[in-house]
Amino acid sequence: MTRIIRLSVLVAAGIAVAGIASAQSNDPLAAAVKARQSHMQLYSANLAVLGGMAQGRMDYDAEAAQAAADNLAALASMSQRFYWVPGSHAGAVEGTRALEVIWTDGGIGAEAEAFSAAVAGMQDAAGGGLDALRAAIGPVGASCGSCHENYRQSNN
């Protein structure tokens, strides 16, 4: 009997330990990484429409272009403070290429402002014809690249 009780305690302890382990895999930093990567995916999905039209991968459609540009503007206007959490950089958290310098060099605010300005330009242009869209996508891509140049680890 005592032996069974002992065994049950051990099993319960084991379950508790397993519970802690699974709580760790749900830790807030990992969730933050997932959230910001999802945000980036949404940029990408809308850029695929605008860039796809600019590159001739799909036909120009003013309504769709405007919708994608409006989405980009909405995304750019959202506060991302809850998922760019200090301490969630590459090397500290698995699965992220965000470099620690994001939180230390003070340059990220200007990058965000440049992106918002480029997206606003796209919002004005996207519905106004393919040439206008083509002219507006350069600054958007340049802004993406400017941030990725300094703040994202190179990948394989």
């Binding site: 999905a45 860039g51 600019a54 590159q55 350069g138 891509g141 993406c144 690249g145 990725h148």
Partner: peptide
């Protein structure tokens, strides 16, 4: 353009 086919960008 710097855009990859999946509309990520060069970094």
């Amino acid at each position: 353009t710097g855009f990859t086919p999946s509309f990520d960008t060069a970094g």
